[in-house]
């Protein structure tokens, strides 16, 4: 099947599912009170964008996602490199890392709300805890899996400790970070939205929470659709960045 036909079919599938949803709710097979009405959902989205009402909320959610991603990645990179290169520290920290990773970290949201207030920073903190472990484990692995021959070669070519860090360990770790970039950006987004949902005064998660409070199911669906589209756009951006930065890696395209 050619790419255009595939795209058309995918669009048709989307249209068909909306049509089915519309038919089922309009005919009363599914109660509109619980399942919403697609036309009204789309109308709501249109109204949000036309009036510009949605933009401050989207901006806040994006800001939280970005900050959580940046801080989480930086922290994961730093700690991952440090523990990856320091066997004693790694062995010492091992049970704690495992425990913190096993903990369902979304549950920390109320604590962060108490510590950092209901503003941006409590959401960033939640996102950071999600992104950090993702990046940390990848960097840790990346440092451990540097090819011993490449490492020996660099040492024979005269690399000191700082050269090894800069020219061997960091690039190797970065390749692992990039391989998990899609997941970690997604994690940052989840952190932001869940944080907003659990308590905030702004953001798309907050819009959904409010609509839910007044049983406005159409607005809830509108929020979900906007978030989904937003997540897809972020993912496309990540793919673009990946292509730019990872030229040295052989492409294993599907």
């Amino acid at each position: 099947m050619s790419a255009t036909i595939l795209r058309v079919c995918q669009a048709l599938l989307l249209l068909a599912s909306f049509a089915l949803w519309q038919v089922l709710t309009a005919s009363g097979v599914l109660p509109p009170f619980f399942f919403g009405e697609p036309l009204k959902v789309l109308e709501k989205i249109w109204q949000w964008f036309a009036s510009g009402e949605i933009f401050p909320h989207l901006g806040i959610t994006l800001l939280e996602t970005l900050l959580a991603f940046l801080f989480g990645t930086a922290l994961g990179l730093g700690v991952g490199l440090w523990l990856g290169l320091n066997r004693l520290a790694a062995t010492l920290a091992d049970p704690y890392i495992k425990a913190m990773n096993a903990m369902p970290r979304v549950i920390l949201a109320p604590i962060f709300a108490v510590w950092f207030g209901l503003g941006v920073w409590s959401k960033v903190a939640l996102g950071v805890t999600l992104v950090f472990f993702m990046v940390f484990f990848n960097v840790f692995q990346g440092v451990r899996e540097v090819s011993p021959v490449v490492l020996a070669n660099a040492r024979m070519l005269g690399a000191g400790r700082r050269h090894l860090l800069r020219h061997i360990y960091l690039p190797s770790a970065m390749s692992w970070v990039f391989s998990s970039l899609h997941t970690s950006v997604g994690m940052a987004f989840v952190g932001a939205v869940v944080g907003e949902y659990l308590g905030s005064a702004k953001g798309v998660g907050y819009l959904i929470l409010q609509a839910e409070g007044s049983f406005d199911i159409n607005t809830v669906f509108a929020g979900i659709l906007v978030l989904t589209a937003f997540a897809l756009a972020l993912d496309a951006l990540v793919s673009l960045a990946e292509q730019r930065l990872m030229v040295w890696q052989p492409r294993h395209e599907a």
Partner: peptide
Amino acid sequence: GINRHAGYLFQSDALLPWMS
């Protein structure tokens, strides 16, 4: 430690894959 007088050509591929 490392022999600073020596250059080493390895049996297996030892190029840095992230450098041109």
